[in-house]
Design a protein around this nucleic acid. Structure first.
Lengths: 164, 164
DNA sequence: TAAAGTGGCACCAATATAGTACTCTTTATA
DNA sequence: TATAAAGAGTACTATATTGGTGCCACTTTA
């Protein structure tokens, strides 16, 4: 259905939670309560985010997790990639792919472009944006030469937090 | 893994094939051969595309399928929606959703924006674009502060023409 | 040394997906 | 008019993925 998994959704929620107070150390139990999720589930997501370097942890009593980078340096794309692997709408666009269609597939090149467009849409949104209640897309796209296709026919957009 | 299903991938391939010769009537067997897929599988996808109004069919001997609309009026998004339902990265953004997180979810509003950006990226690519060997979306995203970033900078992917 | 934490697996149930099979209807044409 | 070609609709099954949990080891602090 063209969607991220629920675990990834949780990941974005949790990372947003961290970003709201970047210095604060939080443990799985506290986050679970805040997010209305079970501790094991939250714990699982945190471990994954840790392994991918988005969080750092402090073990032992009084320990917990916090962001490994500044909120402005973490995009929604980073989180998705950490939890689901590289964003590739079609299998053929994965590095490891040996899609048997490739030799006679006329569209694989175009899929790469499409992936790019989607990745960019996600890479431009950082945790700083997510912390805002709602941010407004404000973007400008420029049409170019004849053999080029504008990816957006309307007035394009760019993510811009409302109160920035 | 953030990807479309294989059936949807087939759907895009098939629709692109139709778009390469919009007038021509094609049957499932011929398309299957050209796409190196089994007839039942191709047939299944065609039926779905038909039901969603992207193809029209002519029954009986000598029958087949062809595009219901002009290639320029069919976007990649249309095909994805036809085969996978509405594009909603998170459950909470589906009309029918009654996500129990919603009342205390701080990011659902932002997800709506993110969905919007992704949908736009996909809605702006039509079958006309897909028929091109590979098209260059030369969009310039304007960062608030300054510099422009072309969406596609790398080069060198090959396109293998199909002779179907 | 007990308690509070994370770290790393491994497991199982539920769901989604891919592919196929079967039967029915429609239409061209010999 | 009989037959074959082609789509229409539905249902089924094996497989893969996902979501959620449980368990135990390790680390740190009080």
């Amino acid at each position: 259905m063209f969607r991220i998994t629920r675990l990834t959704d949780y990941g974005v929620m949790l990372m947003t939670e961290f970003a709201s107070e970047p210095e604060r150390l939080r443990n799985a139990a506290g986050l679970a309560e805040a997010a209305h999720l079970s501790v094991p589930t939250v714990s699982k997501v945190l471990k994954l985010l840790l392994k991918e370097g988005l969080l750092e942890s402090i073990r032992g009593a009084g320990g917990g997790y916090r962001l490994a980078r500044k909120p402005e340096d973490v995009s929604v794309q980073d989180i998705i990639v950490a939890l689901e692997g590289p964003i590739a709408l079609t299998e053929c666009n994965l590095i490891s792919s040996d899609c048997e269609q490739k030799p006679h597939c006329s569209v694989s090149g175009n899929w790469r472009r499409i992936n790019h467009a989607v990745r960019r849409a996600l890479a431009d949104i950082t945790l700083v944006d997510m912390v805002q209640p709602h941010f407004e897309p404000v973007i400008q796209l420029q049409k170019q030469q004849s053999n080029t296709i504008p990816i957006s026919s309307e007035t394009g957009e760019r993510w811009l937090p409302t109160n920035m």
